[in-house]
Every structure is written in C-alpha cells, then in structure tokens.
Amino acid sequence: MTKVIEVLNLRQGYGKTVVLKQINLKIKAGEILALLGPSGSGKTTLISSIMGMLKPQKGTVTVLGNQMPNRQMLSEIGFMAQTDALYGTLTARENLTFFGAMQGVPKARLGARITYAAGVVKLNSHLDRAVQYFSGGMKRRLSLALALIADPRILILDEPTVGIDPELRQQIWKELHHLAAEGKTILLTTHVMDDALQADQLLLIRQGEAIAQGSPAGLVAEYRVKTIEEVFLKAGRMQDAHNSNG
C-alpha cells in the first residue's frame, strides 16, 4: 500500500462560497504531511473533506483505496479536532473509554490502549480527574490521546501543538516520528514553522489554493530562500501576481 490518502482536483465549499480549489495531495504510508497556512486558508475544510465529513463538490478523495465519504474508514482514522471537544463533567479516563468505544476498540484492549495513549501525552497521573478542571494544555494533550486511542493507521491532527509547552512538544514529535516509522500515516495542520520542519512533506495553502508542495529542504532550495516562512511569503507573492494577471 503506497498511497494512503489521495486527493485529486478537489474543489470544496459551503453553498456558493468556494473554500478550496484544485487541491491535489498524495500521502504514502509512514509519511508525515503538514498543511501549512494562515487561519481561514481552508486547512480545516481540507481535513473535513479527507475525513468524509463533507462530500467533495468536485474531484475525489480516496483513503486506503476507498472513496470518501465512507463511514467505515473513520475507524482507521484517529482525529484530533481543533477545538478541544471533550466532556467536561467526565474524567479523562471516561472520555478515553467513551471515544474508544465509539472508534470500535474491543473492550479487552481498551485498558492497555488508555495507558498507552495517556502515557504519550503524560496524562497518566491525571486520568481520574474531571476534564473541566484541566488546563488548556492538558485538554489539548487529552485530545491528542483520543486520536491515538484506537491505534489507527492514519492520524489526522488539527493544530496539535497549540498550547503545548516546548518540552512536551519535543516528546510528542518524537512519538509521532516513532509512529510514522511503524508505518502510520500522519496528516497535521499547523501555522508554526518549527512543526513544519519536522514533517516529511509540506503543503502550503493560501486562500484555498495549494501554492507550494514538497519536502521542507526541497522547498527552501527550490525557492532559493533560507526558511519555510520565506518560502510561504514568496509563493504567496507569486500567487497574487498570477491571480492579478489571470
């Protein structure tokens, strides 16, 4: 299995407003792809389309060889939402147990999975506290643990490192690389350049269009600049120039 996620000529929008146009994307097993772009550029819409929450207006989205939307495929995807969608009155363990059951984790394995997922985000000692008393960073970490609970083949993480301190961020990246080495496919969105450098592949999105695509080093070389930030700025200027010409 080479292509785990494939997006072809995707156009997506809500009603008449077009949010994404002409998006093409391929992610192989064991690869980490970061979607980079300012807020409002369409990153979350692209994620929703890949997960099949939205039907493509044009083009196709394929996950593990199945055309999306496909409900069954969602059991192969571990998702971390941008907003911490947690049940505040429940404890961390209850949240993990509930989402584990929803993802279809067998009861016998659930205990071990909770220990593992909470371990990755260092929440093991807080498992039996109600989530409403968690700090912002702890909630973010629990959201990530929820994505890991079912041992999915694909991880889709929307802004995973927001509100997480640098030390834990390092540890999370270490774990993500470890998961990728095991053959898991990871798609994440970010607007933090440090995160972008950790990814194997970058897709730069601006105003709903893919303006540049490639490995971090490759992009820096291609645009003859020093940082990813500069790649983004240069590619953005080129997009504007192209659009005003066309």
Partner: peptide, 14 residues
Amino acid sequence: TSGTLERLLATPVR
C-alpha cells in the same frame, strides 16, 4: 456548541 457532536461524528458511529 462544545464541538463534541462534530468530534463524535468523526468516529465511525452511525
């Protein structure tokens, strides 16, 4: 409003 419904629908639940 808390987003948990959307999160819930990101699982294979019917």
